[in-house]
Structures are given as C-alpha cells and as structure tokens.
Write a protein that binds this DNA or RNA. Sequence first.
RNA 1: GCGGACGUGGUGGAACUGGUAGACACACGGGACUUAAAAUCCCGAGGGGGUAACCCCCCGUGCGGGUUCGAGUCCCGCCGUCCGCACCA
Length: 875
Amino acid sequence: MAQSRYNARDRESHWQKIWDEKKLFVTREDAGGPKYYVLEMFPYPSGRIHMGHVRNYTMGDVVARYKRARGFNVLHPMGWDAFGMPAENAAMARGVHPAEWTYANIDAMRTQLKALGLSLDWSRELATCDPEYYAQEQKLFLDFLEAGLVSRRSAKVNWDPVDHTVLANEQVIDGKGWRSGALVEQRELTQWFFKISDMAEELLQALDALKRWPEKVRLMQRNWIGKSEGLQFKLDVIDADGGPAGELEVFSTRQDTIFGMTFCAVSIDHPLAIEAAKSNEALGAYIEECRRSGTTEEALEKAEKTGHELGLRVAHPFIEGKSVPLFAANFVLMGYGTGAIFGCPGHDQRDFDFCKTLGIDIIPVVAPADLSGPALEEYIAAYSDRAEIYDGEGVLINSDFLDGLTIEAAKQEIARRFEAMGKGTRKVNYRLRDWGISRQRYWGCPIPVIHCAGCGVVPVPESQLPVTLPQDVTFDKPGNPLDRHATWKNAACPKCGGDARRETDTFDTFVDSSWYFARFCSPRADVPVAREAADYWLPVDQYIGGVEHAILHLLYSRFFTRAMKQTGHAGLSEPFDGLFTQGMVNHETYKLQDGSWVTPSDVRLEGEGGARRATHAETGARVIIGPVEKMSKSKHNTVDPEDIIGHFGADTIRWFMLSDSPPERDVQWTDAGVEGAWRFVQRLWRLMDRARDWIVPHGSEMPGELSEAALRLRGVSHRRLQSVSEAIESLKFNVAVAQVHEFTRVIEAVVGNPEFENDEGVKWAAREACELAIGMFGSMMPHLGEECWSMLGHDRLLAETPWPEADPALLVEDMVTIAVQVNGKRRDELTVAQDASKEDIEAAALKLENVLRAIEGRDIKKVIVVPQRIVNVVV
RNA sequence: GCGGACGUGGUGGAACUGGUAGACACACGGGACUUAAAAUCCCGAGGGGGUAACCCCCCGUGCGGGUUCGAGUCCCGCCGUCCGCACCA
C-alpha cells in the first residue's frame, strides 16, 4: 500500500463517466432556488485548446462547482464562436470546406475540454455557424432593422485589391494587406451599420453602475466612447480680396480661448481644402504628400505638424477687422468634429507646435489666477519661449469682455453669444462611431435582405428564414464566394416578386458573439431567446475572459442587449453583472543562433540561475534563452495542454493554473511548477489513503467530550473553511490554493500521530478535517476530490454534496498571540486569552523581559493596546 | 503626449478596514531512507552583525520626504516596468 500511487488518467476518466451518466451538470431551473449564471468567453474552434483556455475555463469551473455546492441553480454552458476567416483560409490553403474544417475542429476541442473535467452543461452546446443559431441572429437583425437600429450607407473601408475584400484595421500592416501584401486602398463601399453611436451616452452613463467590473475595463470603454462637450460654431471666411467667401464650421471644447485664435485649419479631406486645391497646384501637391506619408503609425508619431495655406482668411468673430489665415493641416482629422478647427496656440499643444514651426503669433489668454502685475507681465512676455503650453486652471486675459472670468464662465459666455447670434450650438461629440458589420466573406451569417431594382432594399420575410449559406462554393479565386456563386444570389423580391439579388455580405463575427450568452438560456428555442428563460438566467452573474476583449466584444454585447430590450427580446440592459479579466499564460522563448524559434519540448535545460544553459535536444546546438512572453504560435513557445493532461492528468494542470499567480495577472508556465502541482496531487491522495483507516469510520457520532487537541483541530478546520470559501468567492484562487496547502500540513501532522492514537475526539476531528479539505480542493481538483471522497466511505458523489457550513463558534480562537512593540518596534510577543481585558494585556506585556530591556528604565508615556492585535509601549 | 495599473527574498507571490512583513509555492542547501537512484519524509534559509549557547541587535516592501504610538498599506515628489488610447480640437 505504501508503494501505491494515484493513477490520475484512469481515475479521471472514471469519474467523468459517472458525472456524465448521472447528468449532474445538466442545468436545473425548476427547483425554485436562486440562480447563478457563470460563463467563460467561448472559444474560436481553431482545432486545439491552448493554455489560455485551460486557465479561463478552470476558473469558471471552480466558480460553477462552488456555486452549485452552495445550492444555486447553475447555468454553465459552452459553445463555439465558429464563423470567421481562419476557416476560409484553411479552405484556400488546403481545399477543405470551411464547414467541414470547423466541425472537425469543434469535435477535437470538445474532446479536449471534456478531458479537463469541466462541469459544463453540454446539452446546451451551440455553434454560431450552425443554421439553428444564425437563423435566430437573422431574426434579431430584422427586428433591429425595423426598430431603426440599423443603417446602410457609404463608408470608407480598407480594400485589398488583390484579395478583393475588405480588411479590418488589424489586418492592415504598414498599409499593406496581411495576406496579399498588396497596398491597401481606401474605398467607399455601401455598408451595413448598427447605430451604436446613438447609444453612446447611455453606454457611457451605465458604466458607473457596473460595480463588479474591473475599473480598468470601464475606463477603457469610457475612453473609447470618448465624450467631449463643446461648442460647434460658424466663422466667416473671406477671400483674398476681402470679400465674403462662405462659412467655416468648427468644433471646440475650449471656446473660451477664442481671443487666442491666430489661425484656422481644416483637414486635407475637408471640402474647402479639396475645392481650393483645384485652383492651387502647390496646395494639391501638399495634400497628396500628406496622403502618402500618413499610413504607418510610426510615421504619424514622428510627423511634424505641417500645413499649407488655402489662400483664404477667417474673420475673428469678436474683434472687428481682425482675420487669421486658413490652412490645410496634416494634424486635423476629418473624422472628428467638423474636420476643421480654430487654432489657439496659446493653450493647445498641437496648435502651439504648429505655430512655432510656421512662425505664427502665440497669444496667451489664460493665466494662473494668482498672477498679477509684473509677474503676469513676465508670464505673458515669456510665453512664446515655453516648451509646453499652460493648460491648467486660471482666469482669462487678453480677451476683451472675458478678462477676469474663469475658464468655465468664459466657455458659457462664448457659447451664449454664439447661440444668440444663431451661429453656434453647444454640442457633445463622441469618438465612438457606428459599428460597420458588413464583411465580404463566405464563412459568416448572411445578411437577410434582398436588393430589388424597383423596391430597393427589402428584408427577407421571416417565413423565408434562415438564409443559409450554399455548400457548393469555391475558394480558388480571391473575393467573396457568395458573390460569384452561380445561383445563390438570385432571388425573387419579396415585395414585387420580380428578379432581385441577395445581399452577399455576411456579418462581422462580433455580431455572433454579441448575444450568445442570451441564447444559452434557451439554446433550442425557435425564437432568438425564450423570454421566460432569459428573464430567469440573465444577467450573467460572472463572466470570465481575456482583457483583449475589454472594448469591442464587451461594448458590442452591451449594445446588443439594449437593442434586444428595445425589440422585446430581453428584459434588461446590461448582460454581464460581474466581469473578470484573467491574465495571460506566458513562457520562456527559445531561439537558435540563426534566429529561428525553438519549441520548449525540443529544448534541454541544464543548470540554474545565471548559469542556465539550453541546448537543442536533437542536434545539441546551442539555444539562446529569450524573454518570457505570451504563449504564441509565432514564437513557438507554446505548451500543449493535451500533453500535460496525458502526462499528469487534468487535476494537476487545473491546480497549477490556479496556484501562485493572482488570476488577473499573467502566469508563467514552468515545468517545475507543474511537477510541483503533480506532487501535491499525490501527496493529498497519500494523506487520504493513510487517513481512511486511522480516522473514525464514516458516519460516526461526534464524541460528547473533545480533548483540547481535537478542539484545536476543529478550530483550524473551520477557520480554513471560512477563509477558503471567501477566497473562492472573491476569485482569489491563488490564496485558496495556499490555504489548502497549509491546511494539508496541519492534517498530515495529526493523521497517524501516535500521540493521538487513543484520542477518539482527535480521530473524529481528523475525519472532519479531511472531509472539509476535500470539499475545499474538490472544486479545483474535482476528480481527486471524488476519489478521496469515496475513499473515506461516501456513496454520494462529492459533486452532489452541499458546501459545508463553518461553525461560527469555532471561528474564534481562545488564545491569540499578539505582538508587543516598544516605540513601534516589535520586541516580543504575548499569548493571551482572546477576550482578555486591555488592562490584563498591558500588565502582561510590561512584564516581558525583552520589553523591559527595550524600555531601559525610561518613563512610559503611553501604552496602546489594541485587543487581539498589538501592544505598543511608547517611552 | 494622455490615461491607468504595478514595483515586497534567488523566483511566483501572501499580508483583513494602517497593527508580528515575507504565509504558501517553486528553486536551492543539508539530512533521513536506499546497494544506488527515483519517489518520499525531516530541517534550513531576507541582508548584515554579535554570542559558547538559549538567543540578541541593526537594516529591510523601487527612491526621497511627510502624517501616525505604529506605514508594504495613507499623503506629497521622483524613478522604473507593463498595459490601453493616441494629432479626438
């Protein structure tokens, strides 16, 4: 028996089979209990799971198992974000159909996930590429369309002229298509949009109420929405002869600095610039030059602020007879505000830089309120020589009727005057733009509309849904297979019955993932969501995923939920009540001398610390150990979870993923760490194996009298139970792991200890301790949990056993050890009764030898006693 | 540039609302068991100094100040690392 070991592979599949047979993890919703919806971001079916998945799904599983044991009806589903480009790329590269490739990947990954022993309800599995799913998505779209949440208009897109396709911004690298390498063009295409910008204010405001979201994510969304309040107003333009030449509309959040205006500028894409360029060759050349140079991020960063005069001037709205030059400038964006600005170099860094290069006047119009007299004059005189503008609080100067006003008051005054003149309005601008959802792709959800020459855009009637993808498509040519399919796009107009053409664009795959959490509530319903189920389960109580989705996916889902509410498909606005973003899994990188990457499994490591050396296992070539980076295929620093599961089992990999690193931070994968987890699995098993015959039998009554040792053990057990519960509840899995380690040591010291051989109370308390320990680690290592649980004589599965309740009476320790300080320095410690009086503690503390020595006979000024914490003697 | 997070032993990290800094783990060293190894178990360990020894003293949570009886924790100012956004008017 001493030689026996826990055979993880064998026992894990055993318990998985039993859970499966008993349908333990199929969602229960009729028990009338409280509900808990825990969801991890569903994976893209790339074909293999990676460590990031393991970490993500393990965390979710601990929560799910914990909540289930706590008596909640738990919804813990899994599905596949199954549409998208990789399937088409595989089709192009290997001639396999995207559907075939995708479903094969799903099968492979499902098997891998099942091997992890996750308590998922597989009966609710869904794949977004399944017509059953996307049919409902099409229904949602039609309802959104009817509700005015969708628009169709022309927009600029990144167009790859070789692949004949639109590229997402991330797919454009240095101005070139990531696949074709062709220079990407900006094209105007008619596109479908979700009107998310109409909800900008609502999406921004509601962030404050998302208390269980990381502050970081809320902040990122806030920045992304980018609200700014200001004034949009018109300025008079005058031509070279001084005659009126129309108006220039600008947006500013600092209209108070209007008296500091020394120039105006428009974007190179602004109609005024384009018009002026027609008769101004030099200007045209400048605009062309800007277009060419402005693609790469690096170029943008280093680009100096340049401009070219339009040959027009702009009249100052409040200074009779004053006018300023008008430029086309490379730093003014067409996509924000009106594409035109008034330049105030005094209090805008960009304008300041611009004017310094071009030698334009700089007039400070705001000064710190405490400056006056000579100091103020000095401030004004030295202003142009500063390196940076002043943009702090202050009062207006050099500004006629605004002089002496605060910035805020001046803003109001200028806004009031423009409004009175009928030339301006207060306006709120958002950076958030509408969500373009059209993709010229095959492997996505078809947009259910028909284009008719006579009737225009006609929605596909619900009776004709779903619009399914044709099977017979080819990928041998670039472009959209749907578009060149012989017959698919031919359709009769639902309105007039005449010949018409199907929309051949498909949805951005972010559409698919914007509502899957709602679909999980009723995955087989013939409506997008069955309201009763959704009203019960939503919102998701705990959503867990990578921070890389902090903006797009989470913002889109928030929009979608609101849109679903508007169209009666949901009863709430916010889909995710609690959000947790876990860190990445990192690993060392390895390179050969020639710079090529080497996979960890091909590397042999020797030595330690600075003397660590790495060689190539096969060739013996010298390998350079590189920095620790996120596991990625491109750097070949991945470790395949399947190998680890095959070697050590699921519990080991799960335990390692939860150990050490706080879950929101990155974790470094190390072989030593996994081996440590493996040893602990064995150690727990051996402990329970040893304990089974030593502790009292299963079901024994608690002895009437417990020895001090037994009581002490019970206290430790219950306090541990309490702290581990709290750690899991707050997702501090690394802390929970540490506590289990600690508790295990305590039990090991008791079980089999001859000192307690005849102490039935200790043996009873030891059983209690073992059982509580199993409960604690059972949510993290569920197979080992079941194994140990049954070893101790239980027939009922651990997965069916409620979470134990800590006995409040046992949570307080009778004796506490507190530190005794003299002048804030710890000199000794004191063990006293938990409820000892301040006076008693003080008296006892002042008798301690170390304390007396530290006092050295000096006068005691004060003694601070904080019961159960500390004593501080001040001399 | 703007915004945010973080900085604790050789390493990952603990430390509740300010109250014994370094829990727990990894790596390391020593020992036990063994013919040997693996596995396992026990012990040690922030740095420095003192003592024959039980032990004792000094320093120590990026750096410099401050508040407090008491600061890893709070405040001010630096430095560094990471992340997000980026000419957003």
